[in-house]
Nucleic acid binder design. Structure first.
Lengths: 133, 133
DNA sequence: CAGGATCCGGACGGATACTG
DNA sequence: CAGTATCCGTCCGGATCCTG
């Protein structure tokens, strides 16, 4: 069953909210913004995965960072952890409903990154060349 | 004139691309993911702003982080810097077309954060309580 | 006002070694 | 296999001081 996640684009002015609210949203952005969070949610969007499979699927992701990020996602209720008492042990990670609802916004962002990639790379190159006087 | 930015949700599988491409996208995510980037783009989405106005509009943003982030955005071609040779000097920062095209994806994300805020806070609380055995 | 330069503590994250 | 624990270098980012 698909998760209904058609987000209304309400007037969320994420920069100029009340201070308290701004801080709260900031805490959430800190998780979302995390490079590995994005990758992991992307990987899990296709279904449950085991720890090592997850790590192998994301180049550059270290053992430590994977566990840390997974704990964070679990804490936020975006990912569930299921351990099987087999030998060798097996642990599956899976997106919760809320976790998978995050996938669509991230896809939007990824799509943007894709479409702007060459522009940004060009801008960076020009900027750097200009900087070497 | 509104920037046309209806992004097609193509099959961007941001987790399992080629290694090279993954690295490249990662570099872009690093900028987007940055807490302050999000805030600054949000603030600038309403129009050009001066340095100090920008800083005051975002609670907790230090002098140094503002300049650093602005340089980054300028380097990526997402923000323009315009200096007026007046006394005292005045510098306006403004989103480029590409920069403002980032605003909509970010709004989507902010909207998601908003809608999941209480859920996440609850999940965190429960997780933390459960952790104190 | 806008910012560069410098110092410095603390957090982040990699490598390694050890458990169940 | 799936972690936890520890060590330790690096870099981030705040505070401060100084320029045009």
């Amino acid at each position: 069953m698909m998760v209904k996640s058609k987000l209304k684009l309400v007037e969320v002015d994420y920069a100029s909210e009340g201070e308290a609210n701004c801080k709260a949203l900031g805490q959430i952005f800190e998780r979302i913004g995390d490079k590995w969070t994005i990758m992991i949610v992307g990987a899990l969007s296709r279904g449950p995965m085991r720890f090592n499979a997850l790590q192998r699927s994301i180049p550059g992701l270290s053992h430590k960072m994977l566990t840390t990020t997974l704990r964070g996602l679990e804490r936020d209720g975006l990912v569930t952890r299921t351990a099987f008492a087999t030998i060798p042990p097996r642990v599956d990670y899976e997106l919760t409903e809320q976790g998978s609802s995050l996938h669509e916004p991230l896809l939007t962002l990824a799509s943007w990154a894709r479409s702007q990639q060459s522009y940004i790379e060009g801008a960076r190159k020009r900027f750097d060349e200009r900087a070497e006087e």
